[in-house]
Structure formats: structure tokens, C-alpha cells
Design a protein around this nucleic acid. Structure first.
Length: 429
RNA sequence: GGUCCUGUAGAGCAGCGUGGAGUGCUCGCCACCCUGUCAAGGUGGAGGUCGCGGGUUCAAAUCCCGUCAGGACCGCCA
């Protein structure tokens, strides 16, 4: 028999159906046995009046979180608090009895919940909603990317040399020599541009060997990358992103808006375009330190975001024109302003969720900028070759999917936005 | 990498300042009771290497040193 999702049982009153789920609560009395069964759509009460049949013992033997299949008659009963509905069982099959006691309960802290993540996610509808929203976000991104001429690419995560200077990479053994886990698809998506892929879209894992102990960092996370050929300037990239995010948030609002408000207490606001823009120099003036050359610190990002929100009512803010000193060698610099870059970060409610830039596509300039940054060109040979045989002007962005979800849902930590978190001290489960 | 905080029963905590028998709380677990429960209720019970190692002491969960694990912020980034 096909199982019926618990959320749609109301349509089956009077019928005999089979549901499948987990025993969420047991209230086994002398005359009556109540079992709340939860599946991925909802929870319903199974009510059995003891009658001396094997069903009595079957229900007595249940434990919380056991996987069960119940066949019975869907009965309308206003006495039942949970939806005014109950199932009078004819057959109960315990597919997998849960051991007792459970290692997690409603009190369990963040560490214990990560140790038993499958139970944590199973037991909390809000935790599962994160992944439903993530699915909608990714689908909407793809819809937008395809509608705007992108080709989805899959670039290697094993590399023979580190992809970017400075940042730490994971090194691993590779048939007697070293390989590295990709810390970004950066070079490969640019290679795709050189390959004549007009617009590149990629969603994939990114690995960072940075020992960062914060609520917004992971050593492995999902990156969304876009690279666009033949742009006029970096503004084309920013425009692409703001339109994509407006499309994504409209889809999320339509699909999950009510549930998100119910479970997370936050409202999904579909942003207007264009997003506000502020240069790095203006941001520093705003913070009362004109002339400052450094990057914004997290507190500065929050302050800039708050200021923009107050002034414009907008949750997003592009910070542009980062100093060349804090950007990698491949960021293009504006003509006549070698200390700046044609780059941006996107802040959402105070958190950095994207870095983007126009790339330097002129071979000679690229080589000299690499030299200036002290990047050895030897390991970059394959990358630099892309710029010797007709590479068009291009630019792109990288967006952290987990960070996007974190801000969207108001989560305390990226751990909540990730199914199985990976950090400096977390390699299991 | 830096600063700070935490580690006590299956879960979450109190106890530690001023050393004195694993002392306690909420939930869960096990058994029994309970004729419609629904945050069920009642009675009883089990469950502990006080993260780990060392030291001080007649005596250490408590004080000291080391170590491991986790968290927050900073740095760095998406």
C-alpha cells in the first residue's frame, strides 16, 4: 500500500490508509494507547483501544523515534487537539526500533546536536525547513542563470597547485606527490571563459584550510560561482547578482514565506533593484576614519550595513572599489588608479556573502600584478596561458550558500545552515 | 594564530569562592498504576572514571600544573 503523507490525511477521512514515520510521543494507558506519529510533513495521533490482540503488545513495545508503518482508518475526532484527527490502527509494523534513551532531547546544546545531527534534523521541522529553502534557493539561482545565458560547469576540486595566493589550502597525498583541495573554482571558471563558455555558473564544494573559529566560517562549504564574459565593467557583474538575488528571494518568499516566519520569526523581503552601492572610501568616511586603507572588519561591515539600511531601507549593500592592497593579483584595477580594484563585496544585514570583481584579462598587466604581489608565476602557468590567446574581458562573483541561508533565515550559525558541518575541530559525523 | 568562557548521570544544569561520603534540580529512561491522553498524571527504581593525566593535602568535583574537547569574539574570508 502506498503511504499517505500525514499532512494530507484530512483528505482521507473514513478511508483506510498507511502512514510511515517515527513515534514522536507515547502515551500508553491501561485502556487506551496513544502514539503520535511524525513524518516529514506533519504529525498525527494513532489511537488504539486495547482489545487483547497482538496490536496491544506491538504498541507497548514502541520507543520514541522508532520507525513505524501504521495502517488504519482516518477518523475525524474533535476531541483530539492535534488537528482533530486520529488514526484507528489495524496493523502496526515496527520497521526499526529506536534504542533508549535517545542521546539528544530538547535541551541538547549545539555540540551534542552536531554529534547526533541526523536525530537533530529529523526531530526538528525547522531544521528540515533549512534544506527545503536551500533547494528553492538553488533552483531559483539555476533558473535565473539559465535564463540569462549561463552554462553550468563542474570544475575540478583536486588541484596540482594552490589556486590563489595567501589563503591556506588542504594538502593531500596523490600517488606519491601532493595535490590540493580547491579553495575556489576561480581559475577554472576563468579558464571556461577562455574556452568560449560565455557565462559560467557553478555550484560546488569549496575547501579552506583556515583555522577560523567563528559562527560564519566552515572548512568545507558550498560556493555559488558566476563568471561573465564580455562585460563592460564590474557593474555588469553586480547587476547580474542583484537581479539573481531578487529572483531567488521572490521564489523563497512565494514557496516558504509563511513557514519561515512561523519557524524562524523572520520575514522574507524581496529586495528592490538596484541595490545601494557605496565605495570603500565612502564607507571609511562613514565610519569616521577617512583615508583608512584597510579592509572593513566585521564590526565595520555591520555598521555600514546598518547605515545603508537606515538611509535607504535596503537590506543589501554593495561595497565597491576595494584597495588593491587587500585584493588578489587578478582583480582588475581602474585605469590610472593602480591602488584600487574593480571589485565589490556584497553585505546582507551586516554579513559579507559575496566577493566579486572584474578580472585582469591582459596578460602583461596580470603578470606584473602577480609579481607585485609576490606570486610566483611558475605554478600559474596553465592559468596565465588562458590570457595569451584571446581572452575576453570578464568578471564574476563567488557567493557562500550557507551564509546566504544563515542571513535569510536569521540562523545563529552557519552550522545550522549546513547538514554536516565541517570546521577546524569538526570532521565527524 | 590571539583573547576569554565552558567540560558534573542519556540531555540541560546547580554545586566549586571558603576542600570533608557523588549532594541536588528539570527533562528523559526502566517497572508498575491510571477508561480519551494530548507539555498527560501517580508511585517506585536504575543510571556517575565530576573530560583526561599529574600535583598539593589526612582528605580534591572543589586548590595548582599540564593536556584534550567544545563555544564566543578578534584576525582571515564566502
Amino acid at each position: 500500500m502506498i503511504r499517505v503523507p500525514i499532512a494530507s490525511l484530512r483528505e482521507h477521512v473514513g478511508e483506510t490508509v498507511t502512514i510511515a514515520g517515527w513515534a514522536a510521543t507515547l502515551r500508553l494507558q491501561r485502556a487506551l494507547q496513544f502514539v503520535l506519529v511524525r513524518d516529514h510533513t506533519g504529525t498525527v495521533q494513532v489511537t488504539h483501544r486495547r482489545d487483547g490482540t497482538p496490536l496491544d503488545a506491538e504498541l507497548d513495545g514502541l520507543t520514541v523515534e522508532s520507525a513505524v508503518r501504521v495502517t488504519g482508518v482516518v477518523t475525524d475526532n474533535p476531541v483530539v487537539s492535534l488537528g482533530g484527527l486520529e488514526i484507528i490502527p489495524e496493523r502496526v509494523t515496527v520497521e526499526n526500533r529506536a534504542a533508549t534513551p535517545l542521546p539528544v532531547d530538547d535541551n541538547t546544546g549545539p555540540e551534542g546536536r552536531l554529534d547526533w545531527r541526523f536525530l537533530d534534523v529529523r526531530r526538528r521541522p525547522a531544521a528540515r525547513l533549512v534544506f527545503a529553502v536551500q533547494t528553492t534557493v538553488e533552483q531559483a539561482m539555476r533558473e535565473f542563470a539559465y535564463a540569462n545565458g549561463c552554462t553550468e560547469m563542474h570544475t575540478p576540486k583536486l588541484m596540482g597547485a594552490a589556486s590563489e595566493s595567501g589563503a591556506e589550502v588542504f594538502e593531500l597525498g596523490y600517488f606519491g606527490r601532493s595535490a590540493y583541495l580547491a579553495q575556489s573554482p576561480q581559475f577554472y571558471k576563468q579558464m571556461a571563459i577562455a574556452a568560449g563558455i560565455d557565462r559560467v555558473f557553478e555550484v560546488g564544494p569549496v575547501f579552506r584550510a583556515e583555522p577560523s573559529f567563528t559562527s560564519r566560517h566552515a572548512t568545507e562549504f558550498t560556493g555559488v560561482d558566476v563568471e561573465l564574459a564580455w562585460i563592460s565593467d564590474v557593474g555588469d557583474v553586480m547587476e547580474f547578482e542583484e537581479r539573481m538575488l531578487a529572483h531567488v528571494l521572490a521564489a523563497v518568499e512565494a514557496e516558504h514565506g509563511e513557514q519561515i516566519t512561523e519557524h524562524f520569526g523572520t520575514k522574507v523581503t524581496v529586495p528592490s533593484t538596484p541595490f545601494p552601492r557605496i565605495t570603500m572610501a565612502q564607507a571609511h568616511e562613514l565610519l569616521g576614519r577617512p583615508g583608512e586603507r584597510d579592509d572593513l572588519d566585521p564590526a565595520g561591515e555591520r555598521a555600514v550595513s546598518a547605515h545603508i539600511a537606515q538611509r535607504t531601507g535596503h537590506e543589501f549593500a554593495f561595497v565597491t572599489s576595494y584597495p588593491a592592497s587587500v585584493r588578489p593579483f587578478y582583480h582588475m584595477r581602474p585605469a590610472g588608479e593602480p591602488d584600487l580594484t574593480c571589485s565589490f563585496d556584497l553585505l546582507w544585514r551586516g554579513l559579507e556573502i559575496t566577493t566579486g570583481a572584474q578580472r585582469e584579462h591582459r596578460y602583461d598587466v596580470l603578470v606584473s600584478q602577480a609579481a607585485e604581489k609576490g606570486v610566483g608565476t611558475g605554478p600559474l602557468r596553465d592559468y596565465l596561458n588562458c590570457f595569451r590567446y584571446g581572452c575576453p574581458p570578464h568578471g564574476g562573483l563567488g557567493l557562500g550558500l550557507g551564509r546566504l541561508l544563515m542571513v535569510l533565515l536569521g540562523l545563529d550559525s552557519i552550522r545550522e545552515a549546513t547538514f554536516l558541518f565541517r570546521g577546524p575541530n569538526r570532521l565527524t559525523p
